[in-house]
Design a protein around this nucleic acid. Structure first.
Length: 586
RNA sequence: GCCCCGAUAGCUCAGCAGGAUAGAGCGGUCCCCUCCUAAGGGACAGGCCGGUGGUUCAAAUCCGCCUCGGGGCGCCA
C-alpha cells in the first residue's frame, strides 16, 4: 500500500520534471507516513514541503501541481491538500479489506519479510561469567537479545545466536577455590571463608554434591591450606592478595589434575544450570563458545601474531601492549601481562577474529551498559585485524534497577544477595518476565518493581494482550455452542459490510504489522512490537465492547469473524516472536 | 576530568530517519454486564516535553551550552 503510493508520487514527480515545473536535478526522498488523525486520511506525504525550497515555489501551490500530476489508481479514493502543504491520501475501503484475505492466506507467515535475505548475522548475548546463577540483570539481556535475534530472523536475516562462555581466567579460579573451601567445610574442616570468595548458597550446594560423590578425595588439612597466607582484608590485609594466594595454594595442594577436575565440575554445574535456566526462559543458542577453547587451541596466540605482523603490538614494562590508541581508543591496552598470562581482552580479540573469520556480515554484541568503555578497544582490534569495523554493532542494555515496592533491592554476586532469574520466573512466570523486560527501550534505565511484576492483578500488561487473544478463542467457542458454523467464504465475500468505525480502524492497524516488524528489527527495538500488540489488543477490546460479533445475519457475522480471526492471527504471530504464550482461555 | 545513557501527566513509560490539536498504562473522579470472559470498555481531570541559545516554513524530536540523576573509565572479568 505504502509502496503503491510511493510509486504514484514518483510518477507525479517525473511528470512535473517533464513539464519543467521541477528541476531535473531534484531527486526527492519520498516520505510517506501513516496519519495519526483519520481526518488526514490514511497516508500523508510532506513532499511539497520538502521540495518547496529547491523548487523555489510555494508549498501549497506545489502540492496542488503534484496532486494534479498524480495518476489515477483504484486503491486511492481521494487525495487532499491540507495544512501547510501536506498531501493526504484516502484509501479506498474495498482495498483495505484485502488485508484480511492476506492474513488468512499467509497465517503464521504474515508479517515476515526478506529484507535481510542473504545476510548472515551473529548475535552474542548474555555471556555472563559462569560463576553463579543468572540474576535479573542478565534476564534483561536474555529477553532483549533473544527477541532481537528473532526479529532479525523474521525479516529474513540468517541469524546465529551465541553465548560466549568465560570459562578461563581468575574469576573462575576464585569460584573453584570457593567451592573447594565449602567442600572442606563439608568434610569437617574449620574454614575461614575469604572475603573475596563467592558466598552464594549455590557454592555450598555444588560443594555438597561433590562431597557426596567424591567423599574425601579432594580433602586436605586446613592447616596446610592457611599456612603462611597473606592476611585477608578483615584482618588488615589485602583481599586480592589473599584470594590469589589461596588460589595458588589450592592448585598446589590438589595438583594440576585434581584441580582441573574440581574446577571442571564447578564449571559444568553452573553452566548446565545457566543453560537450563535460559532454555526455560525461552532463550536458545546455536552455540556456546568457550573462551578456554580459544586459549587451548592457540587462537589467542594467532590473533596476537596477526596484530604483531600489522605492527600493532609493543613491549613495555615486561608486558605486551596493543596500540589501540592509534585506532580510536583512549589509551593502549595490555594483552599479555608481566606474568606471561593473556588478559581477558586478548582472548576477546581472538574471539572477534574468530567471528570475523566465520564470515558474518554483521556481528551484534549485546552488552550491559557498564561495558560501554570497552567498545573503542574492540573496534580498534577489529580494525587492526584488517576487518571492516562497521560490521560490529554493539547494543547496550541499561541496568534494570530492582525495587520491592519502594525499597531498592541491592545486588551483588559476591555477597550472594541477589534475585536470580529463576526466582523471578518462578514468581511471575516466563511470559510476564519476558514482556516486562522488552516493553522498555533497551537504552532506557528500567525500574523493575518485583512487587508489581509478581502481582497477578490486571495491572500486569501482558495479560491485557493475552486476554484479547483468549477472547477471540472464546467467541469461536460460543459460535459452536450456538450451533452456528463459520462460513469463511461467505465472510470474505461480505467484508464490505464491515463499515463500523472500529472495524475500519482495525483494518489499518492490522495492515501496519509488517511495517512494525521491519522497523523493530532494523532498529533492534523489540518494544515497538510490544507497543503495537498493546494497541492492537486495545482496538480489539474496544470493538468487542461496542459490537456483537455473533449476530443473526450470517454475512455480517462471518465477515466479523474473519476480521476477528485476523486479529487473532496477528496477536499470535506477535506474541510468538516475543516467545510469549497465547492462551486459548484465561 | 573524560566517555555513555537518561530527564515528557502524580507514578512507570511511548513518541525522537523533524511535521498538522504531545500519547498509553497505573493512580484519581464518574459511567457501562437480562448482551460473545468486566483480566474489558467509555468519559473527565491531569503537561512551559529539565533549562537555555541556535538550525528550519515547521523542533519533544537535530546541534551548542548549562543543571540534575544513573553508569563507566585497571597488567579485573
Amino acid at each position: 500500500m505504502k509502496q503503491q503510493i510511493e510509486e504514484l508520487i514518483l510518477q507525479a514527480v517525473e511528470t512535473l520534471k517533464a513539464e519543467g515545473i521541477l528541476d531535473l536535478e531534484i531527486t526527492p526522498h519520498i516520505t510517506i507516513e501513516r496519519t495519526r488523525d483519520a481526518q488526514h486520511g490514511d497516508f500523508a506525504s510532506n513532499l511539497a514541503l520538502m521540495l518547496a525550497k529547491p523548487a523555489k515555489a510555494n508549498p501549497r501551490q506545489l502540492a496542488i501541481k503534484i496532486i494534479a500530476a498524480l495518476p489515477q489508481h483504484e486503491t486511492i479514493m481521494k487525495v487532499e491538500l491540507a495544512g501547510p502543504g501536506f498531501i493526504n491520501f484516502f484509501i479506498n475501503p474495498s482495498s483495505q479489506y484485502q488485508i484480511i484475505k492476506q492474513i488468512h492466506a499467509e497465517g503464521r507467515e504474515f508479517g515476515l519479510s526478506n529484507i535481510g535475505a542473504g545476510k548472515k548475522v551473529q548475535v552474542e548475548f548474555v555471556s555472563a561469567n559462569p560463576t553463579g546463577p543468572l540474576h535479573v540483570g542478565h534476564g534483561r539481556g536474555a529477553a532483549y537479545g533473544s527477541v532481537v535475534a528473532d526479529l532479525l530472523k523474521a525479516v529474513g536475516f540468517d541469524v546465529h545466536r551465541e553465548y560466549y562462555v568465560n570459562d578461563a581466567g581468575r574469576q573462575m579460579d576464585i569460584l573453584a577455590t570457593s567451592i573447594w573451601l565449602r567442600y572442606l567445610e563439608e568434610c569437617g574442616e574449620l574454614v575461614h571463608f575469604p572475603s573475596n570468595g563467592y558466598r552464594g548458597d549455590y557454592v555450598r550446594e555444588i560443594a555438597w554434591d561433590i562431597h557426596k560423590s567424591a567423599n574425601n578425595e579432594y580433602r586436605r588439612p586446613i592447616g596446610l591450606v592457611l599456612e603462611n597466607l597473606p592476611a585477608d582484608e578483615p584482618q588488615g590485609g589485602d583481599k586480592e592478595a589473599h584470594i590469589d594466594a589461596l588460589i595458588d595454594r589450592t592448585k598446589t595442594l590438589l595438583g594440576p589434575s585434581l584441580y582441573r577436575d574440581f574446577f571442571q565440575s564447578g564449571l559444568n554445574n553452573i553452566l548446565d544450570d545457566i543453560k537450563v535456566d535460559l532454555k526455560e526462559f525461552g532463550v536458545d543458542y546455536q552455540q556456546w563458545f568457550s573462551e578456554r577453547l580459544l586459549m587451548d587451541n592457540g587462537s589467542v596466540g594467532k590473533a596476537l601474531e596477526r596484530l604483531s605482523v600489522g605492527g600493532h603490538l609493543y613491549e613495555q614494562d615486561g608486558a605486551t601492549w596493543f596500540a589501540s590508541s592509534k585506532l580510536g581508543d583512549e589509551k593502549d591496552r595490555v594483552v599479555v601481562r608481566e606474568n606471561g598470562q593473556f588478559t581477558y581482552f586478548a582472548s576477546d580479540i581472538a574471539y572477534h577474529m574468530n567471528k570475523l573469520d566465520r564470515g558474518f556480515d554483521q556481528i551484534i554484541n549485546i552488552w550491559g551498559a557498564d561495558h560501554h568503555g570497552y567498545i573503542p578497544r574492540v573496534r580498534a582490534a577489529i580494525q587492526a585485524l584488517g576487518a571492516d569495523e562497521s560490521k560490529l554493532k554493539v547494543l547496550l542494555v541499561q541496568f534494570a534497577v530492582l525495587y520491592r515496592g519502594d525499597e531498592r533491592v541491592q545486588m551483588s554476586t559476591r555477597s550472594g544477595e541477589f534475585v536470580t532469574l529463576r526466582q523471578l520466573r518462578n514468581e511471575v512466570g516466563k511470559d510476564a518476565a519476558r514482556f516486562f523486560y522488552v516493553m522498555r527501550r533497551s537504552e532506557q534505565h528500567m525500574d523493575f518493581d518485583l512487587k508489581l511484576a509478581t502481582s497477578k492483578s490486571n495491572e500486569n500488561p501482558v495479560f491485557y494482550v493475552q486476554y484479547a487473544y483468549a477472547r477471540v478463542c472464546s467467541v469461536l467457542r460460543q459460535l459452536d455452542e450456538k450451533g452456528w458454523e463459520r462460513n469463511l467464504i461467505l465472510g470474505m465475500e461480505s467484508l464490505a459490510k464491515l463499515t463500523e468505525e472500529h472495524e475500519i480502524l482495525l483494518l489499518g492497524t492490522l495492515a501496519r504489522y509488517p511495517e512494525v516488524l521491519e522497523r523493530a528489527a532494523l532498529q533492534y527495538e523489540p518494544h515497538q512490537l510490544v507497543h503495537y500488540l498493546r494497541d492492537l489488543a486495545h482496538e480489539f477490546h474496544t470493538y468487542y465492547n461496542a459490537h456483537q460479533f455473533l449476530v443473526e445475519d450470517a454475512s455480517i457475522r462471518d465477515a466479523r469473524l474473519n476480521l476477528v480471526c485476523a486479529v487473532k492471527q496477528v496477536l499470535a504471530n506477535g506474541l510468538g516472536l516475543l516467545n510469549i504464550n497465547a492462551p486459548e482461555a484465561m
